[in-house]
């Protein structure tokens, strides 16, 4: 730890002149190759596609559980903000005045697919050391949300997903949170109606900040374990109520507001572990 602190003192002084640093731009031996593990939960249970859960007294299943996260920032113990970026991808877009432009997406973006069991996301290198918080945005905003998703290379998380789409064709923009499933509406124990909660549009994006001390160290741990509780998102939504069962944001603003209001509490840092490296995303 002494070595790390010795390194960080001059780094801290240098950072006085910098607004922040890009994780990928760091070039030091004191770096760690960070992987984010995103574990999908439904309350206290592991989220498993098709499994039946209790939700406010009704049996429901979850068949799609996906969320877009962007604008990741890790804050070091000495207050330095570490941002995460990736290789840029340049695509056609419209600006705020609907003029044709090209736009380069550089931000590290994560699309969880917990209905498919995806959990691991490689973040590149960040400085080793003690951290006090992590923040990110639920959703895709600004120019990143005004790109032509049909032209994004298939390997990029903002590409049109060919299994289940997380982008609205009819209302250009990303679906920040997509939850689908079925709900038991008559209380007979069997699910009988489809429910869909699709939240997008910038009004419903939220920045989540988790204040938790953790240490990233190439010997002690480089796997940051983040849990996302999908039940929390819909805690205020009565899926058995036909007026709340379907929401695609613009067609059901009350539900969209309820879900957006719960985004902040749906995430928790479980801890830091050693990444065994048996997964790649």
């Amino acid at each position: 730890m002494k070595t790390i602190r010795t390194f960080f003192l001059p780094a801290l002084l240098a950072s006085v002149f910098l607004m922040g640093c890009d994780a990928d731009s760091m070039n030091s031996e004191e770096e760690v190759d960070l992987t984010l593990r995103m574990q999908g939960m439904f309350g206290s249970q592991q989220l498993i596609s098709g499994q039946t859960y209790d939700h406010n007294g009704a049996n429901i299943t979850v068949t799609t559980a996906r969320v877009y996260l962007s604008d990741f920032v890790l804050t070091t113990a000495d207050g330095q903000e570490v941002t995460v970026s990736t290789d840029p991808v340049t695509v056609p877009a419209k600006d705020a005045n609907d003029n044709d432009v090209t736009h380069s997406v550089t931000d590290k973006i994560v699309l969880t697919k917990h209905d498919m069991g995806m959990e691991y996301y490689h973040f590149g290198t960040v400085p080793e050391g003690d951290y006090t918080s992590m923040s990110f945005r639920v959703g895709i905003v600004g120019q990143d949300n005004r790109i032509d998703a049909s032209q994004v290379p298939a390997s990029h998380p903002l590409a049109k997903q060919t299994d289940k789409n997380n982008h609205w064709n009819w209302a250009n923009g990303y679906i920040y949170l997509r939850l689908d499933g079925e709900v038991d509406t008559d209380g007979d124990g069997s699910v009988d109606e489809v429910w869909e909660t699709h939240i997008g549009k910038e009004n419903f994006s939220r920045v989540v900040s988790i204040d938790t001390d953790f240490t990233l160290d190439h010997e002690m741990g480089n796997l940051l374990h983040l849990m996302v509780d999908y039940k929390h998102f819909i805690h205020m939504v009565d899926l058995a109520d036909p007026t709340e069962r379907l929401s695609h944001t613009g067609d059901n603003l009350p539900v969209a507001n309820k879900v957006a209001g719960m985004m902040d509490g749906a995430f928790m840092i479980h801890g830091v572990h050693m990444d065994e490296g048996s997964h790649t995303h």
Binding site: A93, D148, W168
Partner: peptide
């Protein structure tokens, strides 16, 4: 309603 930004999309 202008929901698609480009002819491709």
């Amino acid at each position: 309603d202008g929901g698609a930004l480009t002819l491709e999309a």
